[in-house]
């Protein structure tokens, strides 16, 4: 998978693409952890180009979500349809803040 970091004002954006599975989990976990710790409490994980996500990857997202809650920040996800359906299987969509696209996510984070 490819991990790409961007910044939009005080919003940190991580764009993931390809398959997000166990082998990628440690690196993404470390990157998100660093961004949650150093950032302004506004993090967008864009998975529009992610083609598959497994439970290890979900665990990394939850870990980042919980860390962000601790510092009363926001973690927003943008999902490809396949990621959305796999997240819905474990009902994690009831936990995450999910936006339909990157523009909406950035607008939401900028407003709040």
């Amino acid at each position: 998978m490819v991990i790409n970091e961007q910044k939009h004002d005080d919003i940190d954006i991580v764009v993931l693409s390809g398959r997000f599975v166990m082998a990628d989990a440690p690196e993404v976990r470390e990157r998100l952890k660093t961004l949650v710790e150093a950032g302004q409490g506004k993090l967008l994980v864009n998975m529009e180009s992610v083609t598959f996500i497994d439970s290890s990857a979900c665990a990394v997202l939850i870990s980042a979500f919980k860390a962000m809650q601790l510092k009363t920040g926001r973690l927003v996800l943008v999902n490809s349809p396949i990621v959305q359906s796999l997240i819905e299987l474990t009902r994690l969509h009831t936990v995450f803040e999910i936006m339909p696209n990157a523009e909406a996510a950035i607008a939401a984070l900028a407003a709040g």
Binding site: S55, C58, A59, V60, I62, S63, K66, T90
Partner: peptide, 11 residues
Amino acid sequence: QTDETNILYFT
């Protein structure tokens, strides 16, 4: 409950 060291939730 998962935390920073143990992130493995289960279904």
